Amino acid sequence: MFGIIGAMQEEIDLLHSQMDDRVEMNRSGIVFYTGSLNEKPVVLCKCGVGKVNAAVYTQVLIDRFNVKQVIFTGVAGAVDPELNIGDVVISTSCLQHDIDVTALGFARGVIPYQPSSEWKADEQLVAMAKEAGEIVLPGRVKLGKVLSGDQFIADRNQVQELFEVFGGACTEMEGAAVAQVCAMNDVGYVVIRSMSDKADGSASVNFAEFTIEASNNSYRIVNEMLKRI
């Protein structure tokens, strides 16, 4: 069974509307929707914004629904200057950019005393997402590192820094938490993010306008993935 997560309502609306045999369930005070998409069994949920929310929902998906693969879908801010609004990033890995223990001699992004601070996405899911992206959005899909932090990035200098320090493709607020929980449970994951803004201070102008368009692009790739599994 696949677990599919989005942070905001706009990010799950299309998936929710296309589910067959949809059943609403409440687990640990959290609403989940079970059913099927393209004849594949799925559990869909909206986790809310931030890494803590994303981690809790991912663990509940694993514990209560026994999902074996997790897809996180939604929008993000572009960090790679080659990305434009509406382009899609498929995660090769995820890292928390707001972890900073440099005062104790650790590099930025490193979680002290943990076996890993960057979690690779499931290669099979990445390949399927890339193939789906090439079909529905040819020329607009990029593989790359997804950076997560409990911050809405809207400063050009910070964007440049994230790109130069971490080599990130995009920045958002949940993916690395999902990735860490999946790694701890030996569950495969992939993050699929469509660019809603350039993370450059113009978000107040274009975020609301392009969030629905970007969410639709993410949905199209997830939908095509499930068709091909």
Rank of each mutant, 00 (worst) to 15 (best):
S17M: 11
S17V: 05
S17W: 03
S17T: 12
Q18C: 07
Q18R: 14
Q18L: 14
M19K: 08
M19C: 09
D20V: 10
D20R: 13
D20I: 09
D20M: 09
D20Y: 03
D21M: 04
D21T: 08
R22T: 12
R22A: 15
E24F: 01
E24K: 11
E24S: 10
E24W: 00
E24G: 05
E24T: 09
E24L: 05
E24P: 00
M25A: 10
M25K: 13
M25T: 14
M25S: 10
M25I: 13
N26T: 13
N26M: 12
N26K: 13
R27H: 06
S28V: 09
S28L: 07
S28A: 15
S28N: 11
G29M: 04
G29P: 02
G29D: 03
G29A: 04
I30G: 02
V31S: 09
V31W: 00
V31I: 14
Y33R: 02
Y33G: 04
Y33M: 00
T34W: 00
G35R: 00
G35D: 02
S36V: 08
S36G: 06
S36H: 10
S36I: 03
S36N: 10
L37T: 04
L37W: 05
L37N: 04
L37F: 08
N38H: 13
E39K: 14
K40V: 15
K40F: 03
P41D: 15
P41S: 13
P41C: 09
V42S: 01
V42W: 01
V43N: 02
V43H: 07
C47G: 12
C47R: 03
G48C: 07
G48L: 03
G48S: 06
V49A: 10
V49W: 07
G50Q: 04
G50H: 04
G50R: 01
K51I: 08
K51G: 11
K51V: 07
V52N: 09
V52Y: 05
V52M: 12
V52H: 08
N53W: 06
N53R: 06
V56N: 00
Y57V: 13
T58V: 07
T58F: 03
Q59F: 06
Q59D: 14
Q59Y: 05
Q59N: 14
V60G: 10
V60Y: 02
V60C: 05
L61E: 01
L61H: 08
L61M: 15
I62N: 02
I62E: 03
I62F: 10
I62C: 08
I62H: 06
D63E: 15
D63I: 11
D63N: 15
R64F: 12
F65N: 03
F65C: 06
F65E: 03
F65Q: 06
F65M: 07
F65K: 06
N66I: 02
N66T: 05
N66V: 02
